[in-house]
Write a protein that binds this DNA or RNA. Structure first.
Lengths: 188, 188
DNA sequence: TTAAATATGTACCGATCGGTAAACTTTGAA
DNA sequence: TTCAAAGTTTACCGATCGGTACATATTTAA
């Protein structure tokens, strides 16, 4: 029960930042929404930025674990797992509380290319990319780099378009496009 | 020379918000960066939100005008114009001062689905979508809606991936994917 | 049982937030 | 040339910002 207050703070803060934004959320709001006193917060994290970094690390772990597991559950072969990315995405988008991608938001609120928060956000995307590329390679795709990057483009586009309500069925449309690209990549 | 101070304020404010973010930019910063006094600002715009809305309207006009013109210049047929979207995108991304999409940022800092800033941002994407769909229809694509949405997914994904440096050649990879989708859509 | 560790609430810090008031200067059209 | 419109500077408002001090309560391990 010792370290759990810190964990609970991070988990609840993740939700608050996700729903309200980083700059728009003050430490007093965090106190009110998480139930953790400000003194305790600053005992665990030296600054607000440090807390945000912990939030991003937590989100990276949980989101990546969930996504990769869901892709495995929904697809038996590497090819179908790659397409299952968009089925999992669809679940996420249609699920409760979806508000876009926390890392896109973080990197756009902290744009400085050397800012730790920007770097941490970018790292998450790079880890996704690596996983997709490994799957593409296993599936026998020749240019696995290209396909992995393109799947990532479709994924990010779907998340943004879902958040901005540009399209009604972003994940489905992304999946259809991904299927076309995948079958082309496997045909040669 | 009368109305031009308002215009200059909007244009300079666009750059400041783009480079530094909306919540992160205070009105005093705006005074310092635009050279326009706070009194004058509040004579033209009742609130900061109103100024942001004017910024988004200005950006929507200039960006859409530039993009559509560039697509026409770079492509002779509707098909090649659709692909030229990604050539123009490439120019933008590689050009000076690129920091992602102002509308994605605005909608993620003002997430409330009924907030005027969110609605204004979403409108920009809808106008792009309409244009792409019209081009796809002219090109003879059967399911123009689907293709237009997929091109938009690739475009948004490329912008985000460029901003987060996930991929080195986002526009090129998006263009290649778009070419594949387009040729499939025209084949039937 | 007790003492250290770890919470808490409250009050506060200087700086900045969005926004206003008022007195003064520049500008442009009749 | 004159005068109102539109600009500026400066000072200010209450609220909130990120962050700290301190005295008190609760938890936990010996």
């Amino acid at each position: 029960m010792r370290a759990s207050i810190r964990d609970e703070l991070v988990q609840r803060a993740t939700q608050v930042f996700y729903q309200r934004g980083f700059h728009a959320t003050g430490m007093d709001t965090l106190v009110a929404e998480t139930g953790v006193s400000k003194t305790a917060m600053y005992k665990h994290f030296r600054t607000k930025d440090d807390l945000i970094l912990a939030v991003l690390r937590f989100r990276d772990e949980t989101l990546r674990n969930w996504l990769f597991r869901r892709m495995e559950e929904l697809g038996q072969t590497p090819e179908s797992q790659l397409l299952a990315l968009f089925d999992a995405l669809d679940e996420w988008i249609k699920g409760p509380g979806f508000q876009g991608c926390l890392f896109i938001k973080a990197s756009s609120e902290f744009q400085d290319a050397e800012h730790p928060i920007y770097l941490q956000s970018a790292e998450h995307k790079r880890l996704l990319r690596r996983h997709f590329r490994a799957l593409a390679t296993t599936a026998g795709v020749e240019n696995a780099d290209l396909l992995a990057n393109q799947l990532l483009l479709l994924k990010e586009g779907a998340i943004v378009s879902a958040h901005m309500k540009t399209t009604q069925y972003p994940a489905e449309e992304a999946r259809q496009a991904a299927g076309a690209l995948l079958s082309i990549a496997l045909r040669k």
